[in-house]
Design a binder for these strands. Structure first.
Lengths: 106, 106
DNA sequence: TATATTTGCAACCATTCGGTTTCACAACTA
DNA sequence: TAGTTGTGAAACCGAATGGTTGCAAATATA
């Protein structure tokens, strides 16, 4: 099975988990309280997120605190970089058109 | 079934297709030439990408040219925005630490 | 008109996904 | 020590995924 960032963020529940633990580290139970699914389902998502290296654990007694591996999120940003160049270029072209229109109006 | 941008970019073949047609519009056959899979498999991916509104079609005789709906890619960028704030803040904090270390050294 | 090309769609298949219930185990606590 | 709490893992299930082959329809070409 595929285990990369894009697979990690594909599921909406996982994206919500990511958003939660980005703010502060949380235990599986605490995370599960925020959703309509069982703790075990959340546990499965955490397992997948761990395999994708999007999440890190910190044991504290019998509790395990999960937190976001923010560096991994940068991979998405890097992938987007090429496309960002495209839409920024389109914006520049639009800007040029608007500028020309304005100029001709005068 | 879920049909959003994140589902669209979850598959590596689809990401490759997106990268291809971002540069220029292409027909399914032309796209399939770049992969080891069948034309029909590519066609299925294009169907999913269309349902995710990541791709638009333009009929030209019996050929159909597919191109990227770049605006949809911005949705990913917008989602990343919140997390970008986090890692930029971390960078600033690191910068402050380095600055303090440098200052103390003098 | 007869044939070839481009494409989408349906049927099928093995695998994965996302969820559930059940269980085992370690660590707190009375 | 006995019982409670926090957690992961296994077994199971229906649905979705990603691929294949075969076919039908529309357009181009001889």
């Amino acid at each position: 099975m595929r285990r990369d960032v894009f697979q990690g963020i594909a599921d909406p529940t996982r994206r919500a988990i990511i958003a939660l633990i980005a703010v502060q580290a949380m235990t599986p139970n605490a995370i599960a309280d925020n959703f309509n699914t069982s703790r075990q389902a959340v546990s499965k998502h955490l397992r997948i997120l761990t395999e994708c290296e999007l999440v890190k654990q910190e044991q504290q007694g019998r509790e395990i605190y999960y937190s976001l591996e923010i560096d991994k999120m940068k991979e998405i940003d890097q992938w987007l970089e090429a496309f960002r160049a495209i839409w920024e270029n389109q914006f520049k072209q639009l800007d040029t058109i608007l500028h020309t229109l304005k100029k001709n109006k005068k």
